[in-house]
Nucleic acid binder design. Structure first.
Lengths: 153, 153
DNA sequence: CTCTGTGCAAACACTTTGCAGCTAA
DNA sequence: TTAGCTGCAAAGTGTTTGCACAGAG
């Protein structure tokens, strides 16, 4: 849906990425640029493995580890992010009643809360054409009070 | 949709669980009951490891594998579920503009879509007291058309 | 020239699988 | 009795860490 139009827009984003790196004091290595570019061009929320395969085509010497580390770096820089919830161990819930989740990105704790207005999110029509929605939820992410104060990474 | 109302009706829920097992032809083993009970009583969306520790207290002989398998079974039964997105490999996204995600629970693919009304989800006041929300999103889960037809589990 | 970033390999953490003995029905 | 479970151990997958060398600034 969201479209990155044309190649020039991508170039522009890569330029911004370079600036952002310098701003924070990170080196602009060919690997980082290639990985960011691959992520930008991917329309499928790739896993590290998937980005690795793409980057390997243009830079066969790159390692999966570098891809992993770089993607994490990109997320820290704020030029990319981790899709909500992914990367966590599996967690279960026996509460079947409507409720929403807040997840602390530091300690990984999940807080339940409930807000009537979020109970019946309507599935957009165009989504119904593409898939069968079984569950929908509103999801919040951030820092819980316990983790908020602590500066320890 | 199984609707269970009430709060301190753990025994009642366990009874329903027994019935549900029989209904589907699953044996009601002490392990299954203990694991379901532990999950019911936990208020923190536990991981398998966490449930395992709890159950170990009352049944030291259980294995982590059984806990893992049983939790998956509970999710299939519909008496519990996997918290949205958890258990997947980490996935990244370089699109910073507002958009929402649909995730196919079978092939794990993620579809982007965009719906204005979901862009500015307001954080409930009481949540603001408990944590600092950095991101909020509306999330849909189900089967994509490609997986829909296929009966292969 | 210096110090960060990279590639490699080993270590980890979590999950899944195969199998033999056990047990709920 | 017997099909379905469980416990154990091993294998699989994804992620992290430690280290020496390479290359960006």
């Amino acid at each position: 849906m969201v479209q990155i139009t044309g190649g020039s827009k991508a170039d522009e984003m890569i330029e911004q990425f370079r600036l952002r790196c310098k701003e924070v004091g990170l080196k602009v290595t060919p690997q980082r640029v290639a990985i960011y570019k691959a992520l930008l061009e991917s329309r499928e929320h790739p896993s590290a493995e998937s980005v690795y395969r793409t980057v390997s085509n243009v830079m066969p010497s790159v390692s999966l580890d570098t891809v992993n580390r770089t993607l994490l770096t990109l997320a820290e820089l704020g030029v990319a992010f981790v899709v909500e919830g992914t990367g966590d161990v599996r967690r279960y819930d026996a509460i079947l009643e409507d409720h929403q989740h807040f997840r602390c990105i530091k300690c990984k704790r999940i807080l339940d809360f409930h807000c009537d207005e979020f109970d019946n999110i309507e599935t957009p029509e165009f989504l119904k054409d593409k898939c069968t929605v079984l569950r929908s939820s509103v999801y919040f992410e951030g820092l819980c009070n316990d983790c908020q104060g602590k500066e320890s990474k």
